[in-house]
Design a protein around this nucleic acid. Structure first.
Lengths: 181, 181
DNA sequence: TGAAGCATGTAATTTGTTACATGATTGG
DNA sequence: CCAATCATGTAACAAATTACATGCTTCA
């Protein structure tokens, strides 16, 4: 079983399955919102990548015997190890933005035109995040829940806070460009 | 000549060639720093993608007859049109972050561990950007230059300013997490 | 003068994306 | 009960990443 280097996509799947077993479809749903904003995975990948990971022994696979014969995956010990290793190690880092609006601006597009499209989108995203944050914090405020909340839940909230900061920055930035005369 | 949908990578190449003709290797160099931080292109792509674009008539290709027989590409009228269209249209937008540190945090890694790696990297990036900004602004301050500066130069500066804002935000964010007890 | 490291490409492999299909549910 | 839409998956295609090669400079 040749050890390939796992991709971020692999770890996303491992991480999501570390919370609970599920079908590729469920994973796709869990990955919707928030996570997709900073590392999107197309739905077909949940099928191909789970299969690969299962073949490598990092996931176990169980197929319904009747009906739709859905496959449910669960993380194995080996999978947990791989995930934990990656989370703990301080290896290759990478930060990249992939923002089509910014790219257009960079390449010489008219700032006001782009801003007109970007500003409302970022405002909306910011509002969405703030709403999410409110409800998440209410939940965690209930101490009985926060006591058992897995690391990843805390992590998701932190990432959300980061997202809010960046969205504020985006709103600031594109606002300034909208007003350009 | 079937019209495929061009990718951001295609437009990056078109945009860089819109400034001046060049070999794939030169393009790679132009794309280093700044641009790569928000849309990275691996060096092999500069070879394969220029070839595709040339085949589609968006670039013209000229090969040295002696020596290393390097290929120099230039943007064609058709290419300029394609670029301008894309820059002017307000189509599909996409914003994605692709930040391995944030992803680890999201998936449950220990915040302080990640912060210890991220914070210095972002501080360094911020310093680099600020330095770049200073020299760019000095250049543009010379009015004879700024008068002829192409749109893309202005755009690059704006994108740089955006980058600075985000790096500040990153520094703020990871600083807070480093202090966590 | 030889090693290191840029410059320059191509090929192989892996990933990611798009397209296609079809069964199940549910609101109207 | 029918049209959306959600759920579920596979297959084909395109793009990106990694590996492999090798000629040129340059500096110790």
């Amino acid at each position: 079983m040749a050890k390939r280097r796992l991709t971020p996509t692999s770890y996303i799947i491992l991480g999501l399955l570390d919370l609970a077993p599920g079908t590729p479809y469920e994973l796709k749903s869990r990955a919707a919102s928030t996570l997709r904003d900073f590392w999107s995975v197309k739905h077909a990948q949940f099928y191909t990548e789970t299969e690969r990971l299962a073949k490598e022994g990092l996931l176990s696979e169980e197929r319904e015997s009747e009906g739709r014969r859905r496959k449910t995956y669960a993380i194995t010990e080996e999978g947990k190890e791989a995930l934990a290793d990656w989370l703990a190690t301080t290896g290759r880092r990478e930060v990249e933005v992939r923002d089509t609006g910014m790219l257009k601006l960079f390449l010489g597009a008219d700032p006001a035109t782009i801003a007109a499209q970007e500003l409302p989108a970022h405002r909306a995203k910011l509002a969405e995040y703030e709403e999410l944050e409110r409800s998440a914090e209410q939940m965690l405020a209930v101490s009985s829940i926060s006591a058992v909340a897995p690391k990843a839940v805390r992590g998701a909230l932190l990432a959300l806070k980061a997202g809010i900061g960046h969205e504020r920055e985006y709103v600031r930035f594109w606002s300034a460009l909208s007003e350009e005369r």
